[in-house]
Every structure is written in C-alpha cells, then in structure tokens.
Design a protein around this nucleic acid. Sequence first.
DNA 1: TCCAGGCCCGTTTTT
DNA 2: CGGGCCTGGA
Length: 815
Amino acid sequence: MIDKLNAPQREAVTLAAQHALVLAGAGSGKTRVLTTRMAWLIQTGQVSPQGLLAVTFTNKAAREMLARVAALMPLDPRGLWIGTFHGLCNRMLRAHHRDAGLPQAFQILDTSDQLAAIKRLLKANAVDDEKYPPRDVQRFINGAKEDGQRPRDVEAFDSFRRRMIEIYTLYEAQCQREGVVDFPELLLRAYELLSRNEPIRSHYQRRFRHVLVDEFQDTNTLQYKWLTLLAGGGAIMFAVGDDDQSIYAFRGANVGNMADFERDYAHGTVIRLEQNYRSFGHILDAANALISHNDGRLGKNLWTEQGEGEQIRVVEQPTDLLEARWLVDEVRGLISDGRDRSQIAVLYRSNAQSRVIEHGLFSAGVAYKVYGGLRFFERQEVKHALAYLRLMANANDDTSFMRVVNFPPRGIGARTLEQLGDQAKAFDTSLSAAVARVAGKGGSNLAQFALMIQRLAHETRELPLPEMVEHVIAQSGLIEHYQQDREGADRIENLNELVSAAAAFASEANVSGLPAGVVIVPDAQTTTLDTTPAESDFAESLTRSAGSGVDESGTYVADSNVDLSAAQLPDSGLRGASVGLAEGPFTAFEGGFGGLSPLTAFLSHASLEAGDNQAQAGQDAVQLMTVHAAKGLEFDAVFITGLEEGLFPHENSILEQAGLEEERRLMYVAITRARERLYFSLAQSRMLHGQTRYAMRSRFLSEVPDAHLKWLTPKQGFVDSEPRWKSSIDSGGATYGRQGAAAHAAVAPRSVTTGVTVGAQQFRIGQGVRHGRFGEGTIIGLSGSGLDAQAQIQFREVGAKTLALGVAKLEITQS
DNA sequence: TCCAGGCCCGTTTTT
DNA sequence: CGGGCCTGGA
C-alpha cells in the first residue's frame, strides 16, 4: 500500500500520533495521500473506521475519497464519517435534533430558497428593499453565520447595520417557526450543539481519533472552529491543502486558516508534496514563476521527473471573434491529430466568454460540453415537485408553500395571499396554519390546496419513495400544466427523472455497501455509557443499540440488516441512530434511513446534492468551463483564453493586493491543469456589455519567463494588418494553416484600433496621462466611442479609476 | 391572471 | 448584447 509512494508522501501517510499540515501542490497525489493514510491508520490498528472523520467540500470529492479508501481495503461505508461539512453537520443535527432545537424533519433551504424566504420576510415587515436589497441581506446574514455570529454577536456601528441585525433576528425567528435551515445554519447549529452540550461534545470528541480535512485552504472561520471543537478530545488532525490554490476568498474561505493551523496544531510538522506527476517542465516552471509574484506564501516549488515538454503556445488576436476562430481551428487540429475531445479543455475567467467560443465550436460541428449552469435539483419544475413533497413532510415550510400554492394556477391571487400572510403574521403561525382564517373565494381555493397536501400525504403514507414521488407529481397537476406548455416536454422529462432519482436514492439506501461480513476492529473495547442526560434524544439514541457486539478477537460478524457502525463503537460506547445517518452514496444504515422517513432523507439529499453540474452528459466532447470549475481536474491540452487586463486579472480585483493575488492563484490553477500542451490566448478587443472594449495584455503573460513561451503570433503585436499565425500542428499543419488564414481574411478587420478619439485628443492604451486631481497614470483600458468613451487609468498615487473621456480633463504626457 | 415590454445590470460558486 | 426581473395594462 505505501511502497508505491514517494518519500514525502510516505512520511505524510505514516506520520505517527501528531498533527500535520500537508502542503500538497497541484498534481502531487493529494487524494492518494489522504486515502492511503486512512487505510493505513485502520489497517495498522491505530483507529477503527468509526474513529475517523474525513471532511471535504464537495460531494464529488467525498465520493471519490470513499471509493478510493474502499479500493484499498474492505470497508463497510455505513458507519463512516466521510462527507462534506454540510452533509456531516446535517447528519449530526438529525441525530440530535431535539438538542439542536429543530424538528427531525427540518428542511434545508438552498441559496435560492433562502433568497425567496428573505424577500418574503422583507415584505412582511415592510422593510425598504431599496435600502436593504434581498441579496445584500442574504450576504450579511450568511457572512455573519460563517463567522460564527448570531445577531447579538454582530457589532452595530451605525443605524444601517443595526437595522440589518434586526432583519437577521427576524429571519432567524422565521426560519425557526418554519422548521427550515439554510446552508450556513447547518454548520453554525452543529457548532453550537457541540459547544453547548457537553455530553454530545465529549461523545464525539472521544469517538473521533483522527480528523482529516481536504482542501483545507478553502475552509472558512466557522468550519475551522467546528473542526477544532471536534478534535478537542485529543484527536489527531491531518489537514491537506495548497495555499497557492486558494481561489474562494470571495465566498468566505480564509487561507489564513493554514497559517493558524500550523501555529495551533502542526508546530512545524509541515510536509510538502512538491513532486508533480501531471505536467511537463515548461508548464510547471511557468506556474512556479507566476506564483512567485505572490507575497506571504507558505512556500513550495513543484518539480517533475518528466522532461521539459513543449513551450506554452501564445496567440494574440485582434478581436474575441478571431480568438474564437483561431481556437476552433486549433482544436480541430488537435482532434485530427488523434487527441480525445474530452482531453481538451477551454478555460475562461468568466462565463460570459463562453458564448463566442461555443458559437465557433457549434458552427464548426465540434462536439463540446459546457460546465456550469443549472443543476438537476435546481430546475424550476423539479423544485416545484420538491416543494409539494416538502410541504407534505413539513407543513410549516412557507417557502415551499408560496412556491406552489398557485402553481399550477388554481385561482389564488396576490390579494388572497396577502390576507393569508397578514393572518399568519397576526397569529404568529405558518401560512398553512392560517389558511382557515381566510374567507371568501380565495379562501376556499386555499382550503382546497391545503386539503390536497394533506390528502397527498395521507395517500402516499404507505408507498415506497419512488411511487410516492410519482403520485405527487401526477396529482399536483404539474404534468398537466407542462403538457399545455409547448416547451414543457423537457420539464416533464425532468419530472420523470426525479422519480428515477428517488428510486436510485431508495435502493442505494437499502443496499449495503459491502456484503455482510467481517470488519476488523483492532482496538475494540466497549466503554460504559454514562453522563448522558436521560431526557435528551441522545440518551434515546443510546438505547437503540444494534443486536450483537464484538467478539474477543475484535471481529464483528453481522447480517446485512444490522448497522455495523452501531454495533461496534470501540472507543466510545455510543450505539444507535446518531452514528448511522449520512447523505449521498453512504446513506445506507439500519436497512433504511436511520430513523428519518424516506421522504425526509430524500429531501435533504436533494438539497445537499444539487446534482451534476455539467450541461449535457455527452459523448466525447471538448470541455468548456471557468477556471474555478477546472480546479481539481486535468487535461492533456488546455487553452487559457482572454488573457487581458481587466478580464484576467478581473478589473474588480486588481485594485487590492489581496484580490490581485487571488487572480494570480487562479491563473496558477489554470496553468497546472495541463499535462502536455498549454495555450495562452488573448484578444485586443472584445465585445462586452454591448460595447467594444480594448485591453492590454494580461500582466500574467509577462510574469511567465519568455523561455517557456512560444509566440504563434508576433510578440510585438499587430499594427494594421490582419492576423497571421503559424500553425502549431507540424504534421498536416499546412492545410490547417492555410484554411485558417483564408477563412479569417474575409472577416479580419482592415485595421484594428486600440485607440479612441475624443475632440482633438487621441487616446490609446498604454499612453501616459495626467489628471488634475488624480495625478499621473497610464491608460490600461478603453471602451465605447465618442461621448460614451471611457478609459480605465492606472494612476500612480490613487490606483485604477474609470473616467469618462468626454468629461475628464486629461493631458497626454507620453504616447 | 397573464403576458409583453421596459429596465437594469453585468466575476468567480459549493453546500 | 442578452437575460432576469418587475410592472403595468388587457
């Protein structure tokens, strides 16, 4: 198992009882180290599978981790705590729902549900949504929660924030009344549960002997606190991450956690995985050189035993359209050279850039796949169907109520709903509880709706999950509604797909991951149960112990109906429901859903795993995605497009050092996706927001040493001619090159302006200018023309500004 | 209740 | 330019 590892990998895997921080560079075998360590700890008898806690950010990563550990050794997945932060917290909250102050069937609000809930709240409380836009409120609330703050913990500097805090308070009350929990709340509740409830805390602290964290650089403040609490009983922490790949600060990730972790736990036990098994030398050295421009890194230099490989091919085109055309030709060349389409990735900084590229690929008939966009459980029709199901499980869920009360239309108008809302507010009840208080025609329609939900719940009580879902979809009127709609066929298709998803979920939950049999528990010993408050759910769960125990040899034999994890808890003695809950592929335990109704289990699954993020599951296709989406993936050939100042690095990020450094890390991530071949491309002008914008080359191009670059277009740039580029495909390149040039001659503009004339002045990118107030600067971007013309100027003293050229008085100091 | 047309806005995204 | 959202009129 460990003999195939390199020295630092082996060191990390076999590290004895001490905390460690593993700095794992791109392509250095991070997942391998993590999974091998888990298997090694178990096999050498240092921990039982139940004593492990392994946390990731995405379901995909959790699945992969489980699959890879299971490939290394026989393992029953059911008692394992491998999952996402949110999944594991959900599991904990379900098991201890009473201690956490929640109904067992609490519903999980996804981001859009949460926004809808906030809008409803603002309306009900007559909050000025000009001054307090729902999105800002959402950001405020989630930001606070991610820092571990309840309303009373948030500082109120001014009246604006005071009001925000009031709204936060109201929002909490609303969620509590409705029995719903948003994403950050899952974490905060779980954290508070542990910190306030000593028996529960010490149970988990005793249970988890090893805590392993993936992508540690992406953790936020609350996640770090949660981990610290869980590991508080002397567990050994093993954090794997790469500060150079931290690209999620904008959503709360705190890279500083890595340095804190080193100080708080690792004390110098920092292991660096620097040998890269993915890319050739030029690519790796380019990445190293680029990232060295960042300050405050923990420090790391990737190397490879593979050769130098090819230089990075660089192409500059006059327009985004031509950039796309060039790209399409190059992609076709790669394909005709025998490369798999799926091994070719086109990366861009922002989604808007995909449009031109898609268009180009489409016209050329090249199969492609775009990642990003709506996922299965986020589709409108699927959410509608889920809302019916959620109401059946929890009638107080007002968000779901509002979503479907009049969908499909059943004569319940805004007026009626307003009355209903007033009644609910006056009596402090849920909307569905207030139905009886609304009279009139609208009232009777409402009553019918409420009755239908009750009827559905009653009718489907005994049905297996997939049939329940099928029944609800049919009876809700959704199918009929979409049949009327000319574009409804896809939606009906998706509703049927939801039934299949329910079937898959149910069968996964009922099938054990491995045949019943032997699980090795080397350090098996059962401790007595004590110190548990008799009245809590926790105590209840303890009494629900599974049938048999562990024999003298530490081996447990069970039939497939018994939850192995519940039967053998060597280090804690806890048995029962609190260990069996999970989402995703490891939902199976106790032959079902761990005390949750199948419906509730399915609904949390739907909220926590929104489904695949890829548009069309197609055959072999070229992969299009943002750089963010590419993290963790690798391809033989990679195109990094749109390398222009203002785009990559993005203009919203260049003003601050931290922002710029994150952009640079993003570029680092992009470069390190490539195995063999890498392209950089840029366009001198680009259609953006309906305007043509001109931009300079990205600074990242000049941060990569020339030795690694091979310009296919003149490095000096074009002046007045159409582009000419050399084919990079040596074999058969002639055809491709000629075709390319011929095809483009027709569309290439006769001359390319990178300048704008306003009055008597001609402005160009790169020019030096002086402004009365801001001082000396350089033009870094131009957009628009005539009176609308604007310039982005990097001023020496005051940073970047965007000025209207028709208004601002600028003196040209240097052309 | 529904639809059309006007208006605003425009990085990155997982759970 | 294009998409999402809201409003106002039928």
